[in-house]
Design a protein around this nucleic acid. Structure first.
Lengths: 195, 195, 195, 195
DNA sequence: GATGAATGAGAGTTCATTCAT
DNA sequence: CATGAATGAACTCTCATTCAT
């Protein structure tokens, strides 16, 4: 029992530590040493749980994306109106960026480009797009959303929330998220919904 | 004379080579060796023209941002209507992403995070925001744009264009940019303009 | 009782596993993990039975050398003619290489060089030389073997059998050992016996 | 000019240093650090000249084998009698082991086993066998050598010279090589030539 | 008897940078 | 102007060993 707890403990500590360090430094500048230090374990321990730096990173990303997906799917009721659901998705998204800023910074900084790893990150983005895409399709079918390219809409949703949220995250001072949240929602909804 | 021409020549070659390699690999994974190879010069030559890898990179970024700024300022007439100008800015922006995808990929991948260099990139983003911000302020004053936080709008503009443009850039096949362009414009303008 | 049987069992499994892995990878490239995996025990178990990798290895080598020594001494009758005994030694030797190729590969690959462990392996070679040397001395005394340096003869015997046997072992296809065996014997005996 | 000399100088120093260290420690135990130290260059320099430790090692081996091949082919006159040529080959071989003991120790210690690199070393052994094999074929055709398997003879030649020479090399004290040389030759020639 | 999570010293390798030419 | 041999600090990863259970 204790073993399992310790095990989970170590992996959890590694997860948090990696998120922090990767977010602060980016994948390449982050060192395994620093991640280990921050987690309070020996360097070798990381290699006991993960095959290497790359795998630790990917694990982190997939885990994060999964959380976002789970949250969206659990909070959205298929019976709700599309317009309402879309507004809720935006809220969830902004909240997620707010709560998991480390993860989101990493995603933003590493998801572009075209190398091998990035393809796997692109896959995650695609998965995300497909989650959101479902609602967009429904919205268009119900003539709630104007007939536009699904990709443009999904990318806009992702781009506007993360970049804008990021923009405010940079300022150290606490500030009121509510107006940001509602403004982002307003821009997007007005932009895509039929009058 | 010849010397000057050769000089320009070499520096130009280095600029293009660096843009390609940085875009393909990202700052950290790109090596000075590869940039030199690609430019057809010896590694030492880079250090003749730039103080180091970092400076070459920053030179590239600033040059790129300057180009965007220049283009916006030269094509926008202060006498024009705000709504018209904003639409034009979006067009210019999308065109710029399309034409300078290398540069934009770098910007997207290196502009996030908080390390030393990134602060300098953030400064660039801020500079960009301020260019756009001028029009937004004017728009709000003229009650053409709804009263919103300037930052949210600027970030939305940047986020939506780059992420969406990027999204389509990933697909190898040529495709028609016009609808993408107009849809992005539509989303944004509807989102921020008063009815 | 059960405990003792399990004990023997585990040690025996470790012995076989170590022989396989050391032969396949050499001492340095072989990992304790792999040996444990192959034996179907946990890594820690090896340290329960042996002080470490080095000791496991030496145990293996000494065990192997002892087997060869035992076999030679048990099959050779001091009353026999020297020439006959030498021929028999060669046969035994070739058979041993054939039957214990794993062990011999290790011996061949680790016995050279001058590091600490290798000195212990050299001791084994010396012990082997002394076993064979007894017969060589006797042969020279009886004027059956031409008066030559004992070391040259013993090294020749060892070199010719192991290298030649090894040479044929490399070929995957089964082939007839008898002629190889007799040819090796012929070369050596003609080479060292008086006419 | 100076550059070329320095270049050759560095590579030559690396060659000698690598031979010494590999011979003393074996491939795995030898460290790149030690090789660099011994050569009086920085560790990175090795990677300027060779792709890695492995390549440095293979370069060493191939260079060594080539030297032996060259020496045999340059000193052997096809017009000479086979028996005489074979004797000479043995002499050359023993001399070579004597003069290049470092190289030979490495060859003996790394040529056995079955891993990837070893296959490349086996290729070298095969090349060597083919050089010697030419003379053995001729000898058998001329009925100077008794009709035996060519492989057995070549392996015997290689095994007996290297192992025996090695055996004496281990003793630090200088000693007279001539009798060793002639005894090895005698064993082999008597063993394979017709009466 | 046996386990396996955790360790940490030490290895091979990369690469931005320097400098004599 | 331009070179490229040489550097060395810093990095990722390996693995024999320990020890609490």
């Amino acid at each position: 029992m204790t073993i399992i707890i310790k095990d989970l403990d170590t992996k959890k500590r590694l997860f948090d530590s990696a998120a922090k360090v990767f977010a602060k430094k980016g994948f390449d500048k982050a060192t395994v040493d620093e991640i280990a230090d921050y987690a309070g374990v020996a360097k070798g321990t990381i290699y006991y749980y993960f095959r290497g730096k790359e795998e630790l990173f990917l694990f982190l990303m997939e885990e994060g994306m999964e959380r976002l997906r789970l949250r969206i799917e659990s909070k959205i009721n298929d019976a709700d109106e599309i317009a309402y659901s879309l507004g809720k998705i935006i809220d969830i998204h902004v909240d997620f960026v707010k709560e998991n800023s480390d993860l989101c910074i990493i995603l933003l900084s590493e998801a572009w480009g075209i190398s091998a790893r990035q393809e796997r990150l692109q896959d995650m983005l695609d998965k995300y797009y497909s989650i959101v895409g479902k609602f967009i399709d429904a919205g268009i079918a119900q003539k709630v959303i104007r007939p536009m390219d699904k990709g443009v809409i999904a990318a806009s949703l992702f781009g506007i929330t993360t970049v804008a949220a990021q923009h405010f995250l940079r300022k150290k001072d606490a500030f009121d998220w509510d107006p940001v949240n509602s403004q982002i929602r307003e821009i997007l909804l007005r932009g895509i919904l039929v009058d």
